[in-house]
Structure formats: C-alpha cells, structure tokens
C-alpha cells in the first residue's frame, strides 16, 4: 500500500494516477477485512474503488490526461505535511496499545450495543443496527450530504448537458 502511494506521488500521467488510486482503495479494503471491518471494506471497495474511479475517469475524459508542470519547490509542502505527521506521532504515542481490551472505546459505550442489540433492535449485524437505529440521524445527515453534492453537480454542469460525461457524473453522484 505504501509502495502504491509512493508511485502515486511520483507519477505524472493522470490515467496512471487514477488506476493507482483504485488499486490503493482495494488494498485499503483488504486491510479493513483483516481488521474485522467487513461492512466498511465492502463500502470502500464499491465506493472508493468503484464510484470514485468512474468519476475520475469521467472527469479525465473531459480534461486532458497529462500533468504538464513539474513539481515546484517541494520543501515547504513537505515541511508542512511532516509537521502535521509529527504532531500525530506525538499524539498517538500516548494512545492505548493495539488490541488492548481495557481501552476506553471497548469499555464505555459499546458493551450495550453488543449485549442488547438483539433484544432492542432484532438485527444481528451490530454495524447495521447502530447505523440505522442508534445513530440513524448520522445516516440521514450522510444522505443529505450526498443530496447536496448531487444538486451541486447538477447546478454546476446544467448548462452543458449535451456532453455525455456530465450525465454520467450526475447519475453516479446520486
């Protein structure tokens, strides 16, 4: 995965970039399966590797596919991102160790989900139950975000409806 990202950073052909981004998404999905997050992995594989790639290819079709300019002074951006990374290193060093059952996230809110989910909602998949019932309002918000983006894409591209790429994008965004 790290290798993919490094090649992604170096590559200048945008088509290569898009394909590599898809590869990266699939690798991420594999890692998520290894971490027991099957629902997230499924979403990442379909949305991250599927829809995103289609959207990017649609946009590439409408634009040219070669990055012409070389990288400008790379040191300032590198310094900024390294600083953010260093801050995150500083923060994560104090977190509970990997797979520590006594960590706060495993002891505080979640036990009720795991113990009572069958009695309270009747859905054996806890992720589904939390998504649709306990935190259903987040999901409404998420749908609204997609609605916003869909309307936004329509508003931006309406005047050029004749070209096929635009219609394609609107469908995918919905």
């Amino acid at each position: 995965m790290a290798l993919t990202v490094i090649v992604l950073t170096r590559s200048r052909n945008l088509f290569t970039v898009v394909v590599l981004a898809g590869v990266y998404s699939f690798l991420m999905a594999t890692a998520l399966v290894a971490l027991d997050a099957v629902d997230v992995a499924m979403t990442e594989a379909s949305v991250g590797a599927g829809i995103s790639t289609v959207l990017l290819l649609g946009a590439l079709y409408l634009c040219k596919s070669e990055e012409t300019k070389p990288v400008r002074k790379p040191w300032l951006p590198l310094a900024v991102s390294a600083a953010a990374g260093a801050l995150l290193v500083f923060g994560t060093l104090g977190l509970p160790a990997f797979s520590d059952p006594a960590a706060p996230i495993h002891t505080h809110v979640v036990p009720r989900y795991l113990n009572d989910v069958l009695r309270e909602t009747g859905v054996p998949n806890v992720v589904t139950a939390v998504l649709a019932s306990y935190r259903g309002y987040d999901t409404l918000g998420e749908t609204t975000v997609v609605f916003t983006a869909g309307i936004g894409v329509i508003a931006l591209l309406r005047r050029r409806r004749k070209q096929p790429g635009a219609a394609n994008k609107q469908d995918a965004a919905k």
């Binding site: 923060g91 994560t92 996230i105 809110v109 979640v110």
Partner: peptide, 9 residues
C-alpha cells in the same frame, strides 16, 4: 483521538 481516549461521542 478524543474518542479513542474517552470512548464516547
């Protein structure tokens, strides 16, 4: 990070 430390949202 806050969630990882407190376990609640």
């Amino acid at each position: 990070l806050l969630y990882l430390m407190t376990g609640t949202l």
